Amino acid sequence: MGVATSGIADGPITILVDDDATVRDALEELLNSVGIDTMSFSSGQELLDAKLPDRPGCLVLDVRMPGLSGLDLQHVLATKGILTPIVFLTGHGDIAMGVQAMKAGAVDFLTKPVRDQTFLDAVSTAIANDVARRAASTVSRKNVALYETLTPREREVLRLVVSGATNKQIASDLGISEITVKLHRSNMMKKMNARSISHLFNVWQSLPVDSR
């Protein structure tokens, strides 16, 4: 395994997996030249055995390698819940492989030799995707914590509010007075830090389905 750093401990990192040391070295040099840290592995199993840093970034996988192929590794990572965006590099790619990789969520499927700028653009897109994913995950966790402060009745009111029900309809559905609905609704909005109904709807949408 090779590790190169730009000195930014929490900056983006690109993890390279390729059995060709010459390719790994060249890509590391290119990425480090634009300030992107790198880690490199010669096989998929080596990657799986390693402790990876919890930083925004992407994976660059060779398609054909001894042992686990890049496509196999993509599948294994997905089953482990590792959602780091993937860019594939191949010297022997075909349309079917590219379609399979993209359907499974790859950001790009590039054929060697690849132009430096094309490669950097793909990596930049993948890193941006990971930054956005991590930000959304942080927001979701925060909103789940807020949701868990609601009483069972406030949760019922929340579900009905985001479904578009009026206070009168909510009162009828729950068998309570409109005044009581307004009280629960006010408390719920405060606990969820919701500034408006549209904001509340966005908060609701960020909650994992199984936590609602």
Rank of each mutant, 00 (worst) to 15 (best):
D10Y: 10
L16M: 08
V17R: 05
V17T: 10
V17G: 02
V17Q: 03
D18H: 04
D18F: 04
V23G: 01
A26G: 08
L27M: 12
L27V: 10
E29L: 13
L31S: 07
T38K: 02
T38V: 08
S40F: 06
F41K: 12
L48I: 12
L48V: 12
D49V: 00
L52V: 13
P53W: 06
D54W: 05
R55Y: 05
P56G: 11
P56A: 12
V60A: 07
R64F: 15
M65Q: 04
P66R: 08
P66V: 11
G70D: 03
L71M: 09
L73V: 04
H75M: 09
T79V: 10
K80E: 05
G81Q: 01
L83P: 00
L83I: 13
L83N: 09
P85G: 08
I86C: 03
V87R: 07
F88G: 00
L89R: 05
T90N: 01
T90L: 10
D94F: 09
I95E: 11
A96K: 13
M97L: 14
V99N: 09
Q100D: 13
Q100W: 02
M102I: 13
M102S: 06
G105H: 11
A106D: 02
D108T: 03
D108P: 06
D108I: 06
K112D: 11
P113L: 09
V114M: 05
D116K: 13
F119H: 02
D121Y: 07
D121M: 13
V123Y: 00
V123M: 01
S124Y: 01
T125Y: 03
A126Q: 04
A128R: 01
D130E: 04
V131D: 00
A135F: 15
A135E: 08
S137E: 13
V139C: 03
S140H: 10
S140Q: 04
R141N: 08
K142D: 14
A145T: 11
L146Q: 12
Y147T: 03
E148M: 11
E148P: 02
L150S: 04
L150W: 05
T151S: 15
T151Q: 11
P152S: 08
P152G: 08
E154N: 07
E154K: 05
E154T: 12
R155V: 11
L158W: 10
R159I: 01
V161K: 12
V161R: 12
V161D: 07
V162D: 06
Q169D: 14
I170W: 05
D173V: 09
T180Q: 07
K182W: 06
M188P: 00
M189T: 14
R195S: 10
R195W: 07
S198V: 14
S198N: 15
F201C: 02
L207P: 02
P208G: 10
